[in-house]
């Protein structure tokens, strides 16, 4: 018998590892990727592969040459960042813009804080917002998907449904007139509309999200409260004035809300730890998203909402602690 091993208890360990969590998320993102390839064709695949490739390469280079430490790009976190970044950009984005986005995401938003687990903001969203403010034209020119191309053979690009809504409201058009240009809610749910490549199909994202919930990688707290808040808030507005405000169902299925709620707002690193905190986080995201969508200058507010709540996370962690056992005296 070789030397006995000795360690403090516990001597057993659960199955789940960081790698498993990361690869589960990647697996859960695949339906959305498949849908975007179906609608946008090869371009969607090109953007995704480029983004993942750049992210891996940048993380590898930083770990190897700047930090001169262990290289651990196989943990899957850089792949997720790459995929999520790709999901948040139009499919016709030139490669060099994608590269800049990846450098910002990995280099600035993640590695400069110390790598996995130490970044305060969601890296993919930082990259996305950086690109949005730096290259507004490229980032908001959405290619038509294959069905739209058939319907409008002479057009090359279109707008997202939220964009159409915002533009229309600015011009003072009535809601019913605007919605003539917007696909039906069912089409939006399935993904047959313009937008960033990963966010178009609410259905595919929900499938991925349910998989993560079943695998217990994420909990219901953030996605549920986020969606419910947006639904309730926009619902109240809709009830007040249906001519001025779009229906809550439309808000749920359009834009990046689903992607944000299931994949970005649930990023473990940048969200609160306790159940109470997560509910506050989801609530905040929902309120900010609705405010930006309804009254803000940008048509979409998911990225900003999540980033703002990311900034509030340390505070939420301090303020909303789990209830300690035995804290309340029994009568």
């Amino acid at each position: 018998m070789s030397l006995l091993k000795v360690s403090p208890s516990p001597h057993a360990h659960g199955e789940m590892t960081v790698k498993q969590i990361m690869y589960s998320v990647i697996f859960a993102l695949l339906p959305a990727l498949a849908v975007s390839i179906f609608f946008f064709g090869f371009d969607a695949l090109r953007v995704s592969i480029l983004a993942v490739g750049f992210c891996l390469a940048i993380e590898w280079a930083i770990q190897k040459f700047l930090l001169k430490g262990d290289v651990c790009i196989t943990d899957g976190s850089a792949i997720i960042t790459g995929l999520l970044l790709a999901f948040n950009v139009p499919s016709n984005l030139p490669w060099w813009i994608i590269m800049i986005g990846c450098i910002v995401s990995i280099g600035i938003a993640k590695m400069s804080f110390g790598g996995l687990g130490k970044n305060p903001f969601n890296p993919a969203l930082i990259g996305r917002v950086f690109l949005l403010v730096s290259f507004p034209a490229d980032m908001t020119t959405w290619p038509l998907n294959r069905f739209e191309q058939l319907a409008h053979p002479d057009a090359v690009t279109g707008a997202t449904s939220l964009g159409i809504l915002k533009e229309g409201l600015k011009k003072g058009e009535s809601l019913s007139a605007i919605f003539q240009h917007i696909p039906s809610n069912i089409q939006l749910f399935l993904g047959n509309h313009g937008g960033s490549l990963g966010e178009i199909s609410a259905l595919a994202i929900i499938i991925g999200g349910l998989f993560l919930l079943l695998r217990k990688v994420i909990t219901w707290h953030i996605p549920f409260t986020y969606l419910a808040t947006v639904f309730t808030f926009t619902g109240i507005l809709f009830l007040i004035n249906p001519e001025r405000f779009a229906s809550p169902i439309f808000h749920l299925v359009s834009g990046g809300l689903m992607l944000g709620a299931f994949f970005m707002a649930t990023d473990m690193v940048t969200t609160p730890m306790s159940a109470k905190g997560m509910i506050i986080f989801g609530l905040g995201c929902g309120v900010i998203t609705t405010i930006i969508r309804v009254w803000g200058a940008y048509p979409e507010g998911v990225s900003f909402a999540i980033l703002i709540m990311n900034a509030a996370t340390p505070l939420i962690n301090l303020g909303f602690k789990p209830k300690k056992f035995g804290e309340v005296r029994n009568g």
Partner: peptide, 9 residues
């Protein structure tokens, strides 16, 4: 000589 192998933190 070692008598066992420590494997804790």
């Amino acid at each position: 000589p070692r008598t066992n192998q420590y494997d804790g933190a």
